[in-house]
């Protein structure tokens, strides 16, 4: 007898496609935030499936802090070329020219400029009324509270205490001019689901996710990669280590984990016994009390 039950991954896939289609049907100018990471790769694949055999009917937007790893830029350009996606890149040139960086300003102020403000500028410039983001509820405790359709006022701010109730799969996308909706099609995915899906669908990801020997340095309990322009402190000694990146962000604020998982199957295996969460390697989640909630209120994704 045939089974009429969907696997966990297929159920998540169906839900995400439903959300992506709903946004395209109801909004005038949607855009998909593309951050080059694994979640973005998955989101783009889902968008392709939602509109197959047609093309993705909206652009991708990369808010580029100019501080991403070189491998990320390389991957981004190749991935978008091969998938036929319409990529737009926004850089907050004013702030970049002013030399905004986390070493002098601290991570809080640096993020506020190069990420949050840059994103708000980009959304306003493109007059986008809906923006897809790859955030998942399992990533962080304030994200666990986020709706699939998250309302932002005309200043791009999120009010966690006054969110619109969200029932069934009936999403309320009604907004006034200037307001927008952030949409999270991967809300119910976990990190393991993302990797399982990448595995089963053979989705390309940045090679930095895979373990290899890299030049690293220990900094505040985190493994930070050493590049030509990395500012080393006196006591810091670079060493060669087998490691990989569990999440990808800006190079000054993203750490690696020691690992030997050199391909997707090995990562899936590693995930199954993981004892730490993925965002432990992200400095910016730990830079102030309730730091993610604060950043999100101001408009961060």
């Amino acid at each position: 007898m045939e089974t009429l039950q969907l696997s966990n991954l297929k159920t998540l896939e169906a839900e995400s496609i439903h959300i992506i289609r709903e946004v395209v049907a109801e909004f005038e100018r949607p855009v998909m935030l593309y951050s080059v990471g694994k979640d973005s790769s998955v989101m783009v694949r889902l968008a392709q499936k939602a509109f197959a055999p047609g093309k993705i009917p909206f652009p991708l937007l990369h808010v580029d802090t100019s501080m991403k790893f070189p491998e990320m830029y390389e991957f981004r350009d190749q991935f978008c070329r091969e998938s036929g996606a319409d990529l737009r890149v926004y850089r907050f040139e004013e702030a970049i020219a002013a030399g905004v960086n986390p070493w002098d300003l601290g991570t809080v102020k640096c993020c506020a400029q190069l990420k949050t403000q840059a994103l708000l500028n980009a959304l306003q410039e493109g007059q986008y009324d809906a923006a897809f983001g790859g955030a998942r509820r399992d990533e962080e405790k304030s994200r666990a509270k986020e709706r699939v359709y998250s309302f932002s006022d005309e200043f791009g701010q999120w009010d966690p205490k006054n969110q619109r109730p969200e029932l069934w799969s009936l999403y309320n996308g009604r907004i006034r001019k200037g307001e927008s909706i952030r949409v999270f099609p991967l809300s119910n995915w976990t990190e393991l689901d993302v990797w399982m899906y990448i595995y089963s669908e053979n989705i390309p990801v940045v090679p930095m996710y895979f373990a290899k020997e890299r030049e690293m340095v220990q900094r505040e309990g985190r493994l930070v990669p050493v590049y030509e322009n990395t500012q080393l402190q006196e006591c810091e000694k670079p060493e060669k280590l087998m490691c990989r990146f569990r999440t990808l962000g800006c190079y000054p604020c993203t750490g690696a984990v020691e690992s030997t998982a050199a391909n997707v199957a090995e990562i899936v295996e590693e995930m199954m016994v993981a004892r730490n969460s993925e965002r432990i390697t992200r400095l910016i989640d730990h830079d102030q009390d309730s730091s993610m909630e604060q950043k999100k209120r101001e408009g961060y994704f």
């Binding site: 405790k141 304030s142 994200r143 666990a144 509270k145 205490k161 009390d289 309730s290 909630e293």
Partner: peptide
Amino acid sequence: MLTDGLKS
């Protein structure tokens, strides 16, 4: 404190 994710 694990599940009550919001500051308030």
